[in-house]
Amino acid sequence: MGKKKRPQDDVNGNPNMSPMIDCCFLLLIFFVVNATALTVSKDPSINMPSAVSCSELKDANGCIVVNIFADPDKMSEKAVKKYNETYKRAGVIWGVADSNEASGSKGFTQDEGQLLSDYISKQKEFYKAKNMDEKNIRIYLRGDLAAPWERTAGAIRCAAAAGVSNMVFGTLPSRG
């Protein structure tokens, strides 16, 4: 009896992976862009306040971020460590992002309001040079929930002196 030959599969069982990879890359690019567009420089030493009716920060472009710190005794241990590592001096109540500094941040004490004002003016000019509408240039106040109001008010005064009157209070959505 002759052996029957098994019919050879002529259908290729390998799925075509290219469309799936294309989709993955598209999603990847979408999330990369989405994640970077809304980034403002965030200082981890700040314990953000929460608010019930806050809205989404859709565009961080034009935001001049000013971090407002609480007294170190009101910060968590981790936050104090980070704060000391970043600013390396006592009495810093305002912090801003500054690429010229080794830590990437620059701190100002209560008596250095004029320096903060100068920094805001410089940032404002930077955005204006990029043809940004002046009303889109805003101060993004990232205040610690335990920071005394006089520090926030001081930062607002410095901004007003630099000619910026649009403020954005950074918050987290309320959990209650």
Partner: peptide, 24 residues
């Protein structure tokens, strides 16, 4: 790719900062 995808999915769904606008 999947690992990166999952990372970014998680990173973007984390609680992000919101805002309150004020004009002086």
């Amino acid at each position: 790719c999947f690992l990166l995808l999952i990372y970014f999915l998680v990173a973007t769904s984390l609680v992000s900062e919101k805002k309150l606008d004020v004009n002086i």
